[in-house]
Amino acid sequence: MQEYTVDMGSFFAILISMVFVSNFVLARFLGLCPFIGVTKRTDSAFGMGMAVTFVMTLASAVTWLIHRYVLLAHSVTGANIFVRFIGPETSLEPVLRTISYILVIATLVQLVEMFLKKSVPALYQSLGIFLPLITTNCAVLGVALLNTTATEEVLTFPAAVFQGFCAGLGFLVVMILMSGIRERLEVLDLPEAVKGIPIALVATALMALAFTGFGGLITVP
C-alpha cells in the first residue's frame, strides 16, 4: 500500500486546501444546514464551529483506524483483524463503510453533547437542535470519506487527522465570517421577502464566488 510521504509541505498544502481552496461549506457545499441555522450570532456560530471541528478531528482519527484495521482487505494492509473469518482477499469496505462511519460520528456527537451540557450549558442552549444534528452533518461524514477513499492512495494517520482538523477549521472560519455578515444584515432595511435566510443565501453565494478565487492557489497532489 502506498502512502503519502509526511513532510511539512504536504501538511501546509492540506491546511490551505481544506480551509480555502476546497472549503467544505463554500466549495464543496457540505454542511449547509448548521451554516444557515446557527450563524445568526457570532458566539453560537463560534461554538458550533468548535464542536464540528472537534467531531471532525476525532472522527477522522477513529474512522481511519476502522478503515485500516476492520474494513480494508488483509492483502492490502496486512492488518485486518477479521482475516481469519473472511480470508485475506475479502474487504468489508463496500458493506460497512458508511454505516460504521455514521456509528462513529453519532457516538462522538453524543460525547460532545454530554460535555457541553456539563461545562457550557449556555452554549448547549443556544445550539439547540443543531448540536445533535451534527450527526447528520454531511461535512463530517464527508471528511471521513475523503480521508479514506477519495484517492487511490490512503493518507497516513497524522495526515488524515490533520485533514479532519483543517476541514473543521475551514468550517469554523466560514461560520464566523457568515455570522459577522448576518449580524450586519440584521439591521439593514430590507424588503420583507428577502429578510433572514434568503439574503443569507445570497450572501453565501457571493462568498462562494469569492472563495473560487483561491482556486489556483495550490495543486493538491
Partner: peptide
C-alpha cells in the same frame, strides 16, 4: 457466510 458474520461481529 464469513463476510456476513464478520460484518455483524465488526459492527
Amino acid at each position: 457466510s464469513g463476510l456476513v458474520i464478520a460484518s455483524v461481529v465488526a459492527l
